[in-house]
Amino acid sequence: MNPVAVGFDGLLALLILFLAVRALTAPGLQQPVILFIAFGLAMALAWARMRAPDVALAEAAIGTGLLGVLLIDSLGLFTRSKSETPPQPRRSRAASILAVGTTLLLAGGLGFAILAMPEAEGLAAAAAEKLGASGVDHPVTAVLLNFRSFDTWLEIGVLLIAMWGLFCAGGREGFAPRATEARPGTVLGGTVQSLLPLVLLVGIYLLWLGKVDSGGAFQAGVVLGAAGILLRLGGLGFPDWLRPWLVRTLLLFGFAFMLLVGLSALFAGAAFLEYPPTLAGPLILAVELAATLSIGFTLYCFFTYLFDLRIHPATASSES
């Protein structure tokens, strides 16, 4: 037992809780968004403290990084485009007491349940035992892409479904032609462009690293997506050579590729998504490559679609 470590973890936990509460109670929108991003970074530290570097990477990059960018971009929209927000009526005292009371009650009940939890074994031993047959050496990658690849496949599907949801909500399937707004500054554009080879290198490195250590398709995909977003911010619009059919293909490539791998297992007489042991390693790498491409591109599209929608809103169809 190390008092310094416990003290640090205790302080970090308190900080996380404080940031969460303030993110929801701070006035306006700017403070909550900034506090939420700080919350995400503090959470990433907590993941690292619990020896979950894969999760820390994913959370910092996707959960906080990408969502943070989207939130900040929304901040500009919500505070600027309409002249003044209507004055909000103050919440009544009774409502506040109710909210605080419910929170305390829920937290107490759930906290008690967590404290009363017995120590179950978990699946660490089972995963360690089968790791040798999985085709990779990193247990988290083995679970993600072999033992529970069905979950991962569907999760890549959720990204695609969410993109379809964005199309529906935005009122336009596809992307606006090359945006025409002015470049925000050549320093950003220049920096991003000169860093691009390094970013690509890091992405590929992370993908390759997933076989033996923390890393893999998600982290690599996010790095690629982030590179695209930075390029977009640096003034580089949606490229002309990305024709609609190519966009659709890139969006569904990872999901479709994994489906094909799964179905070919069926035709070979094995279970859905079952890899032959000798081919597991290369197949997982191929699946990860396809997934990285689609994940990165979809995340880029999330941002680009929202960003374009702000500048060129879909044709209003507000009649009800």
Binding site: A124, V140, T152, I156
Partner: peptide
């Protein structure tokens, strides 16, 4: 060492 199954679950959940 740490149980990899929840790690994978959380990465899925984050996405």
């Amino acid at each position: 060492g740490p149980d990899p199954v929840p790690h994978a679950m959380v990465i899925t959940g984050i996405v």
